[in-house]
Nucleic acid binder design. Sequence first.
DNA 1: GACCCTGATGTCAGCGACTGCCATCAGTAC
DNA 2: GTACTGATGGCAGTCGCTGACATCAGGGTC
Lengths: 190, 190
Amino acid sequence: MVRWKPGARERLQAAALERFAAQGFDGTTVAEIAATAGLTERTFFRHFADKREVLFAGQDEFERLFLAGIEEAAGSDPMAIVAAALEGATAFFPDERRAWSRARQRVIDADPGLQERELLKLSGLATAMTDGLRRRGVDPTAAALAAESGVAVFRVGFATWIGEGEERPLAEVLRAVLAELRTLVTTPQA
Amino acid sequence: MVRWKPGARERLQAAALERFAAQGFDGTTVAEIAATAGLTERTFFRHFADKREVLFAGQDEFERLFLAGIEEAAGSDPMAIVAAALEGATAFFPDERRAWSRARQRVIDADPGLQERELLKLSGLATAMTDGLRRRGVDPTAAALAAESGVAVFRVGFATWIGEGEERPLAEVLRAVLAELRTLVTTPQA
DNA sequence: GACCCTGATGTCAGCGACTGCCATCAGTAC
DNA sequence: GTACTGATGGCAGTCGCTGACATCAGGGTC
C-alpha cells in the first residue's frame, strides 16, 4: 500500500488554477487548494515558496530554452542573438498550449499580486539574457538593452498570441513584432 | 494644543527607509516603523496600502510627468514622442536626488518583494504611455512597443545614472541610451 | 457657550499567509 | 530486524492586513 499518492505537486497546481479561475486568487485560501488536492496547507508550502508561485512553476525550463537559443546563435550581432533566443523559446508554447495559457493569463490579469510575480520572472529572464549576451562578448549596456528589448518583444508578442481570434503560431507572431520594432526605431524622427 | 503632529505620512516614509536600510525589509515589522514614527500599525495602513508601498509613494507624480511629455511632444513619430516623455520625466530626478535614489535603490535591490513592486509600477507606466500614444493616433501595437522600449531605456538609463562614478545628469544619460538603442536595432544582422 | 461634525488617530479582534519544530510511517538498504 | 530516508501531518506562533468601534481636538453654526 502506498502511503501518499504520487504527483502531489501537479495536483496542487491543477487544483490551484481551477480554484483561482472559479473564485479568484484572493478568494481562495491555500488550505482550500491543499484540501482540493487531498493534502494539507503545510505540504503546499513544501512544494511552493508562496501562494503565487504555484502558477509559475516550470519557469526555469522556459528560461533554459531562452539561454540555449543564445548559446547556439550564430554571429555576434546582439539583436540577431536575441532573435534566436526568441525563436528557441517558442518551443515552450506549442499551439496546443494556447488555450491553457489563455486561462492562466486570465487569472493573472485579474490580480495585481500575480502580475507582480510575472513581471519579476520576466525581469529575471532579461537579466539571464543580459548575462548570456555578455558572455558572448556583447558590450554590457548593449547587452542589457538588447535583452530588455527582447523581453519587450516577447511580452507584446505573447499577448498578441493569446489574443482573441489570433491563430498564427507564436514563432510567427514574434518574428512580426521584432520586425515592427526594427521599423519603429529606424523611422526618422518627425 | 495639537492632538497629532503633522506630517505623519512623511515621518512614516523616513522611518521606513531608515529601518529598511539598517535591518533589511524583512527584518523590519510595520509595528516597528510606526513606533519609530510615533504612531501605530493601524495608522500606517491608513497611509499606505501595504508595507511595500511606503517606498513607492509619489509615483503618481512621476507618471504624470511622463504623460505630460507625451501630450506636449511635437510630431507623430512614436519614438520621438517617447523621447520627449523621457525628457520630461527627468525633472523628477534632479542631481540632488541622486544620493537618496541610490539609498532607496539599495534597499529595493536587496529584496525580491520590493523588486516586484517596482516592476509593477514600471509596467503601469508602460501601460499609461501606451494609452497616451494611442490617443495621439499611434498604431496600437507600435504604441505598446514604443512604450515598452521607452521604459526599457529608462530602466537602463536610471541604473546607469545611479551607478558608482556616474556624474552626468539623468537627461544626458537617457539621450545616450536612446541613441544606443537606435544603433543597436539598426545594425544589420550578422 | 452648547451643539454637531469632521478627520486623523487608537484599540481590539480576527483571518490568512508563511515558518519552525517535531511526529509519523511506508519503503529501502543493510 | 534495524536503521535510515523522504514525503507528509499537526501545531504553535509571527506578521501582514482588515473591519468595526471609540476617542478627541478643531472648526463651524446657532
